[in-house]
Every structure is written in structure tokens, then in C-alpha cells.
Design a binder for these strands. Structure first.
Ligand code: MN
Ligand code: MN
Ligand code: ZN
Ligand code: ZN
Lengths: 156, 156
DNA sequence: AAACTATTTAAGAATTATTATTACCTAATA
DNA sequence: TATTAGGTAATAATAATTCTTAAATAGTTT
């Protein structure tokens, strides 16, 4: 159940509840990013939202993404290749990350909840979030990577 | 079983096998980073190795860390706060990451192997690595964070 | 042991994702 | 509609990482 399944009203209320103004820019960015499950980068979010708001700035995108993270509506996923990607799925799940084409797809991991509960009990660690990535080569990149791919063209 | 349990000879051989020269700088960096389980940043590695090699440069540290990653002897762990940390434990395990003090400790996750095997079979994804992080507040930071910590002073 | 040569190093410059600054602008409210 | 606290857009600043290059050297060959 992502926020993007909820109404515009819900987004506005979530912002206001934390004292943030519901500006058109923020609403546009929220609507976009909460609905894109491809784990877009800030630049991609910027390019997409720009179509609707041509005057928007990249700094506003970054600042809104930070707000969304603070509201726990998205998760930040930094990668080696210096490009952070953003994920509207904040529930425990696995990101399958292709090192060749950069595609990231979610897969379910129902056992995560009990695992986390167990860990929080056995350690004295107060858990607030998690990240589970699996790296490798997706189906379409897998074949090529055997013969062609070297470390040079890895995307992440 | 980390490499640091092995001999100097083993490190040198690992480098040479891939066509890398075993320079004193590289050996010093390898010896240090393969034995530090606190997940140090590049800067920390630099500061530590500097004590033995005062003329070493940060660029050399970065380049050697890249080599070690290529040899699959360490893992790179980028975080939100723009400071990548390095982990000599490349086997599937869980990183418990404290958002207040930045401490990262490994905990075992024996079920990971079968989970990964199962996923690689059910998807057509060729797995080459993984990363499992749990974020929150460690035992010593946990209490304070209730009253003091805001998002401002988060380390990662 | 000296010479050879492809790599590597160190220093500094360059790159680039992200953050800070600031002068207008606007959403929310009365 | 006026007030105002806070937001936006443009730009500059920051800083982690990478690139460039001349000098040094590891590994090899004579
Ligand atoms: Mn995801
Ligand atoms: Mn670890
Ligand atoms: Zn792919
Ligand atoms: Zn802590």
C-alpha cells in the first residue's frame, strides 16, 4: 500500500501535518515520485516533473525528496556510481539491482518482518529502517555480460 | 574467513594473479583495510595508512580500494551522507547501522545463503553480491535519541 | 647487477552530485 | 486583499571521487 494509491488530499494533509506548505511544486514532485516504482534518480524526477513545471529547479526536487524521506514516504538508496535512487516502497523488500543496465525491481520478502522483529529483540538496537539489495545481472543483461561486460560499463 | 587471516604472501599473490603490481603502498592499504571490521571510510583508511606511509596520497587509497573491490576482497557501502564505507566481509551478512554515531557492526545471517539460492533460481537474475542493512540507533545512542536526536545530527 | 618498460604513485586539477545562500515569491490565514 | 512565514529558483559553494601527468619503481630481462 503506497501513498500513491491515496488521494491528492492525502498528500497535502501529510505535508501540512508536519508543517510543510503544500505548494504546487511539492505536490507535483510527490505525485510523481510516489508513483514511479523504477527507483528514479533525482535527475530523472527533475526531468519528468519539468514537463509539467518547466520552471522547477533541481534544488527544489532535492529539497522535496528530503521532505518525503523525512515523512518516511520514500527511501534513499545511494549507489557506488554516485547516483542516489529513490524508492516509494518503504516496507521491507528486496531490490534486485542490475549492475549492467541499472534496472532495479522490487521483490517481496515476507519473512523480513519476523526477521527484523527477532533481531530487534535479540539486540538492543532500535530499528527504524532497512535496505536489502541483491546485485547482479538481470535476465536481458545476463547473457551479454558473459562475453561482453567488463567492469568498465557497470552502471551502479 | 577473511583474507586478513591469511598471510602477506596471499595478498601479494592475489594482486599479482590479476596482473597488479604488489607495491608497498598497496600492501599497506590491503593489510589495513582487510583487518578493520569497523567499516572505515576512505578518509579513515588514508589517515591510518599515513602513519606508516606518510607520503601516501588519498587518490592511491581510492585506487587501491577499487582494486580490492574488483578482486572481491571488500565491499563498497555508499550512504546518504556522502561517505562511502568499506567492508572486508563480503559474505552475506547484516550490517547494523547506527544513524546517530555512525557505528556499523556485522551480525550473522545464516539463512541468507539459502535465500539467495532460492531467489537466483526463481528469478533469472545472476547474483554477484548483496547488501543487507538495518538502520536505527545502537544501544548507547538509543536512549538519547528519544529526547535529543532530531534528523539534523544523523550521521548516515 | 644493471637496464628495461609498463604500471603506479603523488600532487594537484577536474568533475559532479548534493547542499547552502539569497532575493523574490506565494500559500495559508484572517 | 494584506500579512507573513516559509518556499522557490538561480546561483554559488561544498566535498567526495576521479582524472591527469611527470617522476618513481616493481617485475622482468639481459
Ligand atoms: Mn525497492
Ligand atoms: Mn559488514
Ligand atoms: Zn540489466
Ligand atoms: Zn550509535
Amino acid at each position: 500500500m503506497y501513498i500513491h494509491e491515496k488521494s491528492l488530499r492525502t498528500i497535502i494533509d501529510a505535508l501540512r501535518k508536519k508543517g510543510y506548505k503544500a505548494t504546487p511544486q511539492r505536490i507535483a514532485i510527490c505525485k510523481y515520485v510516489l508513483q514511479d516504482t523504477t527507483h528514479p534518480s533525482a535527475k530523472i524526477v527533475y526531468q519528468r516533473v519539468r514537463k509539467e513545471y518547466p520552471t522547477i529547479s533541481l534544488a527544489t526536487v532535492y529539497q522535496t525528496l528530503k521532505v518525503l524521506k523525512e515523512l518516511n514516504l520514500i527511501q534513499e538508496l545511494p549507489f557506488s556510481k554516485r547516483e542516489t535512487r529513490f524508492d516509494p516502497n518503504v516496507n521491507p523488500h528486496i531490490n534486485m539491482v542490475c549492475l549492467k543496465c541499472g534496472k532495479i525491481v522490487d521483490i517481496n520478502f515476507p519473512e523480513a518482518d519476523s526477521l527484523l522483529k527477532q533481531i530487534s529483540e535479540s539486540t538492543r538496537f532500535r530499528i527504524t529502517g532497512q535496505r536489502i539489495d541483491i546485485y547482479g545481472f538481470c535476465e536481458v543483461c545476463g547473457q551479454f555480460s558473459i562475453s561482453i561486460a567488463k567492469n568498465k560499463e557497470k552502471m551502479l
